[in-house]
Every structure is written in C-alpha cells, then in structure tokens.
Design a protein around this nucleic acid. Structure first.
Length: 644
RNA sequence: GCCACUUUAGCUCAGUCGGUAGAGCGACGCAUUCGUAAUGCGUAGGUCGGCGGUUCGAGCCCGCCAAGUGGCUCCA
C-alpha cells in the first residue's frame, strides 16, 4: 500500500503503484477530464507516470500556472512536430513555455519562413491534434541520446545533451516526433483545441551574439477556442493603451529622425505633465531633507576614469567630445553620480552633516543599440529623478526605509498597486567579484531585507543579481502588453566613495569613508510617464492632467460668458480650455470625451444668467449645474484629496 | 548591431492583373447659432520612406539604404 497526500491534507491509499490520472479518477470523472499534469513531492509529473511510494500529490489543471506551463510546453512540441513535417530537415534549439504561451527556436536551414506561413503551420498543428496521438516518455542513456541526434543531424540537441548527466535524460515521443525533454507533458495532443502563432523573431543560440541566430516562433494555445478569442481581444485592448499611440494622440511627446533616434521631444502638454510630477517629487524630497543640485551634461574623461566607468563602458558609450584647441576629451554624462561625488568632495565633511542627500533631475545619455529603442521606455537620452545619499554604515537601513516611503507614497498617489520589489543580493558562491568588505555587504544586505520587510513590500529575492558595487532594491511594473520594466531603484554603493576617496570626520576625530546610496523613485521621467500612460490609458489623475476642464458654449452667443468663466477659473489655478468652434454641443462633448478631458462645462443662457456651469464628467453622464464657485471648490478639493 | 515584417494625405487605412492615386477623420472656408458622444456643403493637402534597376509604362516586380514594429543581445 502507498499513501497519497492531497493538498487539502486528505490521504488516499492505493495498491503499490498509482498514476496521477488514476488519483484524479478516484476523486471525480470531471477532474480526470480536466487534469493536465501533476506535482509529486514538488516535481512535475506526467499523468500516466506511476507513483510507487508515499508522496504528496497535487493535480494540476488549466487554472494552475504550472498546469498552463505543461500545456504550453506540450504545445511547443506540437508546433515542432508540425514544422518538422512541413519543413523536413530543420533543426531544433529549445522550446520552453513562457508567461503567455511558448516559443521554439528553430534553425530553418535553407527554408525561408515568414508570418505568411503561420496559417499553414497552424493547420498542420490542428491536423496532428485531431489524430489525438499519445505522448510517450522514455528514459534514455546519454550515449543513446547522443547517437539519436547525431544520426538526425541536430547539433543543437547534441550540445544540450552533452551538458546533461547520464541517467537523467528523457525523450518524449509523439507520432513521428522525438524530442529531448525533461517533461512533463500532456498525455495526448487532443486536449489542445486552439492554436495561434503570434510572431517571429531572431534569437541567438543560447543567447550568445557570436553564435548562430535561430528563428524563434512565438505562439499560444488554449484548451478552448473561446479562450483564444478572449486572449486576442485582450491583446487588442492592450494595444490601445500603448503609450506611443496615446502619446501621439494626446500630443505629449514626439520623435524626429532629424534630431536622432531615441531622443524624445517633449511637447507642451507632455512637458506640463512631467513638470507636475517633478514638482510633486521635489516637494516630497524637500520634506525628506534632500538638497537640489544642478550639474552639467558632460564630464571630462578623467571623471569617468576616476569613477571606473571609462574602463568598463568607455568603448560601448557615445564617442567623446574633443575641445578644438586643447584636445580635451569630454563625455556626455551617462549617470549623475560622479558629478555628485565631486560635490560631496568639494569641502571637508563632518559626520554631523550626514546623511547628505543630493538630488537632481539629471538628464543622462546612454548609447543603446538601435534595435533596442522603444518609445519612451528605452531611449538614448533620459532624465533620472536621481539623488545620492552619503551616509554612515549605521544609517543605511534608515535611509533605505525613507526612500521606500517615498516610492510607496508615489505609487499610492498614482494608484500603482501592481508592482514587485526585487531585492538583488550577492552570489554567495562568488563573493570575490564584488567590491567592499564582507562585513559591510552583510550589513547592507540585511538592512535592505529588513527595510523591505518592515515596509511590508511584496518582494522577490535574486541571488547574484547585485551590482558589483553593492546590493539593490528595484521596483518592477508591467506595461500594457505585459512587458516588465524597472522603475524605482535603490542601490548601495561601496565603489564610488572608494574611487573618489570620499571622507568625513567622525565623532572620534578620525577620517571615515561614507557609504553612498543611489536612488531614483520614478527611475526615469521618460519611462515613468510611459508606464503612467499605459496604466491610466491616458486618463490621468486630475492633478496631473494637462487640461482639467473644457468650456463648451452652446453657441457663439455665450462666448463672452465662456471667456469670463475661463479667466475666473484660471485665476484659481484651474487649467481650462474653451471649445470655440461653431459646432453642435453633441459634437463638442464627443471630442472632449475623446481627448480625455476630465470635466466638460456646458454653458448657455441659463448658466450665463445664473453664473453657473453645467458639469459633465469624463466617462459619465450629465452631473447637473452648479455655481461656478462650487465647481472650483469641488475641483480643488478633488486635487487635494489625491495628494497623499 | 542581428532576424522577420512594415512604410500610400496631419491621423487611420483602401488601392484588383503593372496603365501617372482614393476614403473617413482632422485642417481650412462658407452656411448654420444649435442643451449632453459626430450639422451640411465646399477647398486645400501626396516626388506613394529614399536611391537605383526591370519595363513602352512601377505605389505595385527586383536590389540597396533609411526609419518603424516584434524579438535577440546589452542596459553603469
């Protein structure tokens, strides 16, 4: 007898072997129909692979992330099988499941393939699905595995096998298609009811730029046709939130080839919005004891030799600027910290001055490969809401807490609730590659972990992701189509204080080295605004939006009143426009709605006589009329309530 | 930078078989003076991304280049 413990704690007894499928059957037929895979003592398991000893078993369905992964991984095999049938002789790299679907990297040899071939491949996949072929797991020896793919002539699989341990290698066979795979898989392809090939991309074998580029096909599958349709609608909706589209429509920013790639031009309305964010943060930072500084956009090559960036990145960055007479070399600044270090070093510092917090909205320039540029999220010129905190070892934790407070205040003010904080620590097995003493690192890492904990952040911890100069905490959010971006960042740095020989005089009258914390709660203004646009779909909070209200006169007869009204509201710091076109009210409302202006003020004879406005809120119906003063009060109250 | 695709009016897009370009929105003008999501009529606006080739003739076919999009690699 063996004992199977289910997630709810119940225990079932079976003869000496049982498959997860049989376990599902013993619970209900419906479950058995829907179960995709299983988890046996934390290992993923094929449905028909027997369990032969006591174990904890969790049955996985489409509703489990892990169940989806198995479903999509099997789908990758399905796609590969279809492609092998259509293009005999192609070679396969890897084909994993991803967050939404899966991909397969394929060497198409002499075949050329484009998205026009997708329907053909999809049809072949559905044909294979129709045959409901079973998927069979087999354990093979390393030698047999190598022999198989040597014979097949697939050097990519051979390379993968060479890195594997003998005795742990498994093949999965479906129809004529045999693939090296850890599994597990669906018991048969028949469960896949809808397939869609999404896109095509080049991908270097093993992510190495120097190796061959394979063709990556992204695709997704579903157990129900309806779910595919819903997914496609979701993607269409997400595209409507794309900050590049909304940024153009709302006249926030633009790009010009003549100015250069990846160099954003902020239009008046976008600048307006950005300035308000900057003013907001500046005010918060003042309360937190920051001092504003301004530094130039370029720095002498020696600055970057001192900082170490020249040695590390000099050849990858923009080329230096050379002065005509003296031949001095300057670089566009790729970061603000070296300049700020020199401000710190400009005078002797006492421990009584620490923590010293220097803040700057500093525009930096970084070379990014042309193919990598993307709207406002990946550019070559951007403005960091940068600050550097110079403090003692003992102050690191408190400073971290305070910065987290600022980030959370911003997120709360802007209703960002879907973020993850990533703590990046040292690789414990390779401490040698990091600068700074063991003792300091441990203290700083502990400080970050504790600070994140105290602030109740939802965190993930990544070992080995720390920069060589210190551990860090990054705030990650997703854009409209699910891509993850780093926004806020807090980084401890032992390196620059060392390189710039920064010092302070302690209470013991001895010289000490400060610790530096880099931090940017927005990250960069460009990226933050991009994410904000996608987050709000352009419906910015009232305090941020470029235009808060628009006056819609019923006819030209009420233009005088509209003008008077505008002046009155503008005097109360309300940003208001007038639609003075000779259009019908319905048309003006429609246009104002589409421009996402929060308040529409319809004025005609009645309002002019009463000194009132008829208010319509964006996305809502008529709110009725109210005195002008009441409207102004309401607006200002709304703004006040938004500022946490 | 690499792979694939895309590029037609300010925007969104159509353009058949190769025969010198169209729509809607927007802009402008005229009429209309209007009460909660599109008033009517008219006008202007295009070296069809650029350069070269094939052809009697190229938006359409071919080549090169540029930019955009989706990825890869990288991101101090």
């Amino acid at each position: 007898m063996i004992h199977i413990t289910l997630p709810d704690g119940s225990v079932k007894e079976f003869e000496n072997r049982v498959t997860p499928y049989e376990i599902a059957m013993s619970i209900s037929e419906g479950l058995a129909r829907n179960v995709l895979s299983a988890e046996v003592d934390d290992a993923l398991w094929d449905l028909h692979r027997p369990v032969t000893s006591d174990a904890r078993v969790r049955l996985l369905t489409w509703n489990d992330e892990k169940g989806k992964k198995v479903f999509w991984h099997t789908s990758a095999h399905l796609m590969a099988e279809a492609i092998e049938q259509l293009y005999p002789g192609v070679k396969f790299g890897i084909g994993p499941s991803i967050e939404n679907g899966f991909y397969y990297d394929i060497d198409f040899m002499d075949y050329t393939i484009s998205s026009e071939d997708f329907p053909k491949i999809e049809a072949k996949m559905m044909e294979i699905v129709g045959s409901k072929q079973e998927i069979v797991r087999s354990e093979v020896s390393k030698k047999d595995a190598l022999d198989f793919f040597t014979k097949k002539g697939d050097e990519y699989k051979q390379e993968l096998i060479r890195d594997l341990e003998d005795g742990s290698i498994t093949f999965y066979t479906s129809g004529s298609f045999v693939d090296l795979c850890r599994g597990p898989h669906l018991p048969n392809m028949g469960m896949i009811k809808a397939v869609k090939l999404m896109s095509l991309a080049g991908a270097y074998w093993r992510g190495d730029e120097k190796r061959k580029q394979l063709t990556r096909i992204y695709a997704i599958t579903f157990p129900k046709k309806k779910e595919l349709d819903e997914y496609l609608v979701l993607i269409e909706e997400a595209k409507k939130r794309d900050h590049r589209k909304i940024g153009k429509e709302m006249e926030l920013f633009t790009f010009s080839n003549r100015v250069g790639l990846g160099l954003p031009l902020w239009l008046p309305k976008g600048t307006d919005l950005r300035r308000r964010l900057e003013t907001f943060l500046t005010k918060v930072q003042r309360e937190y004891g920051y001092q504003q500084v301004i530094t130039p956009h370029i720095g002498n090559v020696n600055l970057y030799k001192t900082s170490g960036h020249y040695q590390k990145y000099g050849t990858d960055s923009f080329r230096p600027i050379t002065t005509p007479q003296e031949g001095e070399e300057y670089f566009l600044k790729p970061m603000n910290c070296p300049h700020h270090c020199e401000i710190y070093a400009s005078q002797p510092r006492s421990y009584k001055e620490l923590p010293l917090r220097l803040a700057e909205f500093g525009t930096v320039y970084r070379y990014e490969q042309s193919g990598e540029l993307h709207g406002l999220t990946r550019v070559r010129s951007f403005t960091q809401d940068d600050a550097h905190i110079f403090c003692t070892n003992d102050q690191v934790k408190e400073e971290f807490c305070k910065v987290i407070d600022i980030v959370l205040l911003i997120f709360k003010t802007l209703n960002f609730d879907d973020y993850v904080a990533q703590i990046s620590l040292r690789d414990p097995n390779n401490k040698a590659k990091y600068i700074g003493s063991d003792e300091n690192w441990e203290k700083a890492e502990r400080a970050i972990v504790e600070a994140a904990e105290e602030k109740g952040l939802k965190t993930i911890t990544e070992l080995g992701e720390a920069a060589f100069y210190g551990p860090k905490l990054d705030f990650m959010v997703k854009d409209a189509i699910g891509r993850k971006w780093q926004l806020g960042t807090i980084q401890v740095d032992y390196n620059l204080p060392e390189r710039f020989e920064l010092e302070y005089i302690g209470s013991d009258n001895q010289k000490h080295r400060p610790i530096m914390i880099h931090r940017a709660p927005f990250g960069s203004m460009e990226r933050f605004v991009a994410v904000l646009i996608e987050h709000t779909a352009g419906n910015f909070p009232l305090w941020l939006t470029p235009d808060q209200a628009i006056i819609l006169p019923i006819s030209e007869k009420y233009m005088d009143y509209a003008e008077k009204l505008r002046n009155e509201l503008a005097a109360q710091e309300i940003r208001v426009l007038i639609d003075d076109r000779s259009e019908k009210t319905g048309k003006k409302i429609r246009d104002a709605e589409m421009k996402k202006i929060p308040y529409m003020l319809i004025v005609g004879e009645k309002e002019a006589n009463e000194h009132s406005v008829s208010v319509r809120k964006h996305g809502m119906q008529d709110m009725g009329s109210m005195p002008v003063s009441a409207f102004a009060q309401m607006l200002n109250d709304e703004v006040k309530n938004m500022m946490c």
